[in-house]
Simulated scan of single mutants.
Amino acid sequence: MNTYPDVTETKQLIKELVTIPSPSGNTKKVIQFVESYLQNLNVETNRNRKGGLIATLPGTNQEEQRMLTAHVDTLGAIVKEVKSNGRLRLDLIGGFRYNSIEGEYCEIQTTAGQVLTGTILMHQTSVHVYKDAGKAERNQENIEVRIDAKVDSAEDIRKLGIEVGDFVSFDPRVEMTDNGFIKSRHLDDKASVAILLQLIKKIKEENMTLPYTTHFLISNNEEIGYGGNSNITPETVEYLAVDMGAMGDGQTTDEYTVSICAKDSSGPYHYELRQHLVELAKTNDIGYKVDIYPHYGSDASAAIRAGHDIIHGLIGPGIDSSHAFERTHESSLEQTEKLLFHYVQSDLVSY
């Protein structure tokens, strides 16, 4: 019997996932990676019309079902303007600030499929030229992409094949430290995707039969608000989003435990499901924190807004510096994996 959870394998999966560019709207390559991973496990999968992936594990009870979801789409950008100075103006994809990507390496994917590299910089970067380099606002007007090519005009850029609407992705700069930290962009939510893939692998390798048929939705539009609001079977009773736990002032979430969300900007999550998760954590000696995320929405809250009659919840590993250069610790991954392992084998909550 293999050791579970194998955090080393989870970390390797995270590294592979974050290095595949997948800003919302351009996620085909990473979905193909996940699809291939699941097919190698002989897991039934299908794609929805939005491009997301659904895996299904049959359970003893098919009349009442569960769905778990995590998202592979990430923050990113899109070319808004090909500038006359040979640089690019961006429009952001997802909820983050321009200052969080200043100085970052990036890739521009052209419509023809060519990939060019660049750096995201302030127009007024040089302190030897611009006296307001430090004070100028980090916004759409001032931030631009310096392309790694000999270009001095809009015409030069267009000769490279770059045009308005091309996707821009950020270098994840993933690094694993010897003492267990994982530093990278896009841990939101590729850390959780890796966790779900590990869970599915465990279930398949041990030939486990779950008490309820369980669907796993790998959604691809969460960062823009609607990744997990469809393809929920009428039999689905519980719907659990696995997404990052948000850290900061006034938060209980940390990088070493699993975060169980009581409420986010959409309102409270289902109280009985939350308590059920807490009791599972207590019973199985799993480190956890209950928290509120004040500026947050999940695929579970999107499903509720879409009108689905479900019990919804949200858990995930604690992630520091969300929507910027993120970090977590392997112990948070481990606690999240343990809670999910016990959750999918537990009874449904009363409703």
Results as ranks from 00 to 15, higher is better:
Thr74Asn: 04
Gln251Asp: 02
Asp299Trp: 07
Gln275Phe: 06
Gly103Lys: 00
Thr336Arg: 00
Glu223Asn: 04
Gly267Tyr: 01
Ile311Asn: 00
Val115Asp: 02
Asn46Gly: 06
Leu116Phe: 15
His71Tyr: 02
Ser322His: 07
Tyr130Ala: 06
Thr236Asp: 00
Gly248Ile: 08
Lys80Asn: 13
Tyr212Arg: 01
Glu107Asp: 13
Glu137Gln: 12
Thr233Glu: 14
Thr10Asp: 09
Pro317Gln: 09
Arg274Glu: 12
Lys83Tyr: 03
Tyr98Arg: 02
Asn139Gln: 03
Thr56Glu: 14
Val34Tyr: 01
Pro172Ala: 01
Gln109Glu: 15
Gly165Trp: 02
Leu92Thr: 07
Asn48Thr: 12
Asp73Arg: 05
Glu235Ser: 12
Ser350Glu: 15
Pro268Ile: 04
Val72Thr: 15
Ile203Thr: 03
Glu144Met: 12
Lys11Met: 15
Leu121Ala: 13
Phe170Pro: 06
Asn231Cys: 13
Lys159Trp: 05
Asn229Ala: 13
Phe341Asp: 14
Leu17Cys: 08
Gly228Met: 04
Met176Gly: 06
Arg97Gly: 09
Lys159Tyr: 05
Phe167Val: 12
Thr111Gly: 11
His128Arg: 05
Glu63Cys: 07
Tyr269His: 10
Pro317Arg: 03
Ser126Trp: 08
Gly165His: 01
Leu187Gly: 02
Ile157Val: 15
Thr233Asp: 14
Ser100Tyr: 08
Thr177Ile: 02
Ile319Phe: 03
Glu35Arg: 09
Asp285Trp: 01
Glu223Arg: 01
Ala262Thr: 10
Leu92Pro: 09
Tyr296Trp: 07
Asn99Cys: 11
Thr60Arg: 13
Asp171Gln: 13
Ser322Gln: 11
Glu206Phe: 09
Thr69Leu: 15
Val7Leu: 12
Phe181Ala: 12
Asn26Leu: 10
Asp132Leu: 07
Ser331Glu: 15
Val168Cys: 01
Tyr105Trp: 09
Thr213Lys: 05
Val290Ile: 15
Lys83Trp: 04
Ser36His: 10
Lys289His: 15
Glu137Trp: 00
Asn48Val: 12
Gly165Glu: 00
Pro268Thr: 10
Gly250Asp: 04
His329Asp: 09
His123Arg: 13
Val237Leu: 10
Gln39Tyr: 07
Cys106Leu: 03
Ala324Lys: 05
Gly95Ile: 01
Gln140Met: 12
Asn142Glu: 04
Pro23Gln: 00
Gln251Thr: 10
Asp166Pro: 04
Asn61Glu: 06
Lys190Gly: 01
Asp243Gly: 04
Leu333Glu: 09
Thr213Ile: 04
Arg49Lys: 13
Asp178Thr: 12
Gly103Ile: 02
Leu314Met: 14
Pro268Asn: 06
Pro294Tyr: 02
Gly316Met: 01
Lys135Trp: 07
His186Pro: 06
Gly113Ser: 09
Val79Ile: 15
Asp189Ser: 10
Gly59Asp: 05
Asn139Gly: 13
Ser169Thr: 12
Pro211Cys: 00
Lys263Trp: 01
Leu92Met: 14
Pro211Leu: 02
Ser22Trp: 03
Ser126His: 11
Ile195Tyr: 05
Gly95His: 03
Phe341Cys: 09
Ala194Thr: 08
Asp178Val: 09
Gly307Cys: 10
Gly118Arg: 04
Glu206Ser: 15
Gly161Tyr: 05
Lys204Gly: 07
Val127Cys: 05
Thr213Val: 07
Asn221Gly: 07
Ile260Ser: 02
Asp285Leu: 09
Ile195Met: 07
Met247Ile: 15
Gly297Leu: 03
Pro234Val: 06
